[in-house]
């Protein structure tokens, strides 16, 4: 019996190597295709590492909730959150700070798209009330916790009197990401869906959308969305003034420098700007209204 215990102790002991030198762990909500995210955040990590002189590692996460949990737990130091997940994360993490947003994030939109074949009778519209045409259609959101792929679309749908239970099958689908929503609507698996305007525009530009199969129905009014959120203890861990250096590095990303230009292009932005915290009050109130923030 004792030898068994000794064996166990020997087995378990070497599994806890001393923590390596301080590493800045960055992450992002998985809102697009993983290979794209890997490319983008690999570049971001390299850029930040060069500028700040610390090791930076990209930690991929598989769903939005895990990103929030990881941040709250302190497993992630700097995360590119959506509006809703950012608010959730900051509410759960005392001291967390908002560092920056893209130029497009203060006035962000979602788009509603439809499969041409399936919705022959539907034409693009401009009035929110016409969202009611989507009743009894097969409809897909993105991730459950996506701001532009679920929260705000659901909010606008509710304004037009469409509840989630009004869709065909008694509930909407959750495709998981914006790219998946496009693919599923294009294939006809869902008749309509809602997603992030910026992803839609950039896929259109890249020629990755078959416009003979998918059609844009409606653009939502604007709302604030994505933002970089950092832990409050970075100065303590990486030295005085680290947080502001980090913020500066993000704000100064410029299209004149090849790698930075690539980062900005993958983000679909011209530059990053400071993000006033109070603009997310509207997201928080919608989140509470729809039960995604308690």
């Amino acid at each position: 019996m004792r030898s068994l215990l000794v064996l166990l102790a020997v087995l378990l002991a070497p599994l806890s190597p001393v923590l390596a030198a301080q590493v800045l762990r960055i992450s992002a909500i998985p809102d697009q295709n993983p290979e794209r995210l890997n490319r983008l955040y690999g570049l971001v990590a390299a850029e930040l590492s060069d500028q700040l002189g610390v090791q930076v590692r990209y930690v991929p996460v598989i769903d939005y909730t895990a990103a929030v949990t990881g941040f709250r737990r302190g497993d992630l130091d700097l995360v590119w959150f959506g509006g809703l997940t950012g608010v959730q994360a900051r509410l759960q993490t005392p001291g967390a700070v908002v560092l920056a947003q893209r130029d497009v994030d203060a006035r962000f939109r979602s788009v509603f798209i439809a499969n041409r074949q399936a919705l022959k009778d539907l034409k693009p519209f401009t009035s929110i009330a016409e969202l009611s045409q989507l009743k009894n259609k097969r409809f897909s959101f993105g991730s459950e916790s996506s701001t532009s792929g679920r929260l705000m679309p659901q909010f606008f749908l509710a304004k037009a009197g469409v509840e989630p239970k009004d869709f065909s099958g008694g509930q909407p689908g959750f495709s998981g990401s914006h790219d998946a929503t496009i693919a599923l609507v294009q294939s006809g698996a869902y008749e309509a869906g809602a997603l992030n305007e910026q992803v839609w525009e950039s896929r259109l530009k890249e020629g990755k959308v078959d416009t003979s199969k998918v059609v844009l129905l409606w653009r939502t009014p604007t709302y604030p969305d994505y933002h970089w959120v950092a832990q409050g203890n970075l100065n303590k861990r990486f030295g005085a003034g680290f947080t502001s250096k980090l913020q500066q590095a993000l704000l100064e990303l410029s299209p004149d420098q090849p790698r930075q230009a690539q980062v900005l292009e993958l983000f679909g932005a011209k530059k990053f700007i400071k993000a006033p915290v109070d603009q997310y009050a509207s997201i928080e109130s919608v989140g509470r209204q729809l039960g995604k923030i308690r």
């Binding site: 998985p30 598989i62 769903d63 895990a66 495709s175 998981g176 990401s177 998946a180 693919a183």
Partner: peptide, 18 residues
């Protein structure tokens, strides 16, 4: 599949992105 490590994550992500 629910993001707790291993091949499941790859399966789900590549399936979701078709």
């Amino acid at each position: 599949v629910f993001g707790l490590g291993g091949i499941g994550a790859d399966l789900r992500l590549s399936l979701q992105s078709l």
